[in-house]
Simulated scan of single mutants.
Amino acid sequence: MKKEKNMTENIADKEMSECKLCPRNCKKNRKNKEKGYCLMTDELCVARAALHMWEEPCISGEEGSGAVFFSGCTLRCVFCQNRNIAAAQTGKIISIDRLADIFLELQEKGANNINLVTPTHFVVQIAQAIKKARRNGLIIPIVYNTGSYENIETLKLLDGLIDIYLPDMKYMDSSLSLKYSNAKDYFDVASKALDEMFKQVGKPVFDKRGIMKRGMIVRHLILPGMTYDSKNVIKYLYETFKDDIYISIMNQYTPLKQVEKYPEINRKVTDKEYDEVVDYAIELGVVNGFIQEGETASESFIPEFDCEGV
């Protein structure tokens, strides 16, 4: 164990001294308290750790998913619903030991899994916390909930630690990813990242209750007026992975105040737009999927990032 710990610490020193954990490759010395593109130093910062009921049914179940929301973000999309934590405006600095304890506390509360939300820039510390928590009795699956703007080398640090990948595939059109996420290369990066994620976890596995124990669910959030790109995304996912993954088609886009300067997306997705994309997925042959019904585009579905459970 001591050898493993030393290896992990060496990786942490290297990555935090010249950070290249995400495709921004900002090379900031986060160990020396410089802030990376993610707006974070090497100090773990968590904004919320609580049971979360609003994920896909096989993730939340009736008991809830043990969601740990990390502060900062490598994408910071202009329409982000979790804008306060993405912009590092809230959160509490904690130790790796405390993070491991949080995982165990969520398990004690009955969580179906540990759900790491926007974790990329803290992967090295998270890996250490997972290993410690497992040595101390953590047995529930670990979910990696990401925008998919990931370096393959960073994902490889998680091989054997993550049970379920819950990535986005936001765009195929590079003009959209540049405008709304400042990432012209988003699709190229994300498609390679999804390949690595699937390589690690493989086909879906569920328990008797229908709760996912292993596998990958790829989310796609439909943007107003962008159904053409949504269809391209769904087609790519289905042709690449067939029924070996689940595709979650989301209509919960919520136009918050910060998108007023982007009038073309300053509205909700219409029922017609959403149905058009869902119907297209069905026509393609998508069987393993999730759709959203009812009023999901609402700020009431955005949790309070008040450091609960941290």
Rank of each mutant, 00 (worst) to 15 (best):
M1A: 13
E9I: 15
A12M: 14
C22A: 05
N25A: 08
N25P: 10
R30C: 07
E34K: 03
T41P: 04
E43S: 11
E43K: 14
V46P: 00
H52P: 00
H52K: 03
E55W: 03
C58D: 08
V68W: 03
T74R: 00
C80R: 01
G91P: 08
I93W: 11
I96R: 13
I96G: 08
D101K: 14
F103A: 00
Q107D: 06
A111E: 04
A111P: 00
H121L: 06
V124C: 11
Q125R: 12
A127L: 11
A127M: 06
Q128E: 15
R134L: 06
R134A: 06
R135T: 13
N136W: 01
P141L: 06
V143N: 00
G147L: 03
S148V: 01
E153F: 10
D159F: 03
G160W: 04
L166K: 03
D168R: 00
M169W: 07
K170D: 00
L178G: 12
D188H: 15
D188Y: 14
K192F: 08
L194Q: 05
E196K: 12
G202C: 03
K203C: 11
M212Q: 01
V218W: 05
R219A: 03
H220N: 02
T227I: 15
Y228F: 13
S230G: 14
K231E: 13
K231Q: 13
K235H: 10
K235R: 13
I249K: 08
T254G: 05
Q258T: 09
E260C: 07
Y262F: 12
P263I: 08
P263Y: 05
I265F: 02
N266S: 12
Y274V: 03
Y274I: 02
Y280F: 13
G285Y: 10
G289C: 13
G294R: 04
I302E: 11
V310R: 02
